[in-house]
Computed example of a mutant assay.
Amino acid sequence: MQRLIPAMLIIAALIHLIPVTGVLGELHLAQLYGVRIQDPNLLILMQHRAVMFGLLGLLLVSAALIPAWRPLAYIAGLVSVTSFVMVAWSVGNYNDSIGRVVMADIAVTACLLVALAIDYWPGRFSTA
């Protein structure tokens, strides 16, 4: 079961690393989110968001390899994904691309919660 923790963190990391391509510009962001970004200020914010996802993805990869980093990774990852899902649901009326992001974030939430549960309550998940 302990091998499942790094696997869940790597899956969460890979999903967080997908948006990093948005740093390459408006066309990449349009492909990711299904929206055109005409305002240069919004483009700056979205490209910075891509960088932040890269950092979070690297933290999750690092936590898969360095157990001491896992508490921070669990907190940062869960805050990231649950806040996005809550914002998307509260605003509503989002496009299919954003809907895929919501579903991906729900999957990441599940991965992080599984890893967290195994990490902090190992007796409950032993196969002995």
Rank of each mutant, 00 (worst) to 15 (best):
I11T: 06
A115H: 01
V87A: 11
R3P: 05
A73K: 00
I37C: 09
L113C: 08
L113A: 09
L42A: 12
W69R: 14
H48R: 11
H16C: 09
P71M: 02
Y33P: 00
T109A: 15
G22M: 08
H48V: 07
Y120L: 08
L32W: 08
A107N: 05
A50I: 11
Y94L: 05
S97W: 15
V79Y: 04
R100Q: 14
I10E: 01
A50S: 15
A73H: 02
P71Y: 05
S90R: 09
L29F: 05
D96K: 12
R49W: 14
A117W: 02
D119E: 14
G77M: 01
I10W: 09
L45F: 13
F84S: 06
I18Q: 04
P71C: 06
L42R: 15
I118P: 00
A104D: 14
L78R: 03
L32Y: 05
N93K: 10
L78C: 00
V102F: 02
A63L: 11
I75D: 01
H48L: 08
D39A: 12
L27R: 13
H48D: 12
N93A: 10
S83A: 12
Y94A: 04
M1D: 11
L56F: 03
V114W: 06
I106G: 09
R70S: 03
D39G: 12
I11K: 03
S126W: 11
V102K: 03
D39Y: 09
V79M: 01
Y33F: 14
L45A: 15
S80V: 00
D119V: 02
L27E: 15
L112K: 01
A64V: 00
V114K: 07
S97H: 15
S90G: 08
A76I: 02
I18F: 11
Y33I: 06
V114D: 05
C111Q: 08
I5R: 00
M103Y: 09
P71K: 09
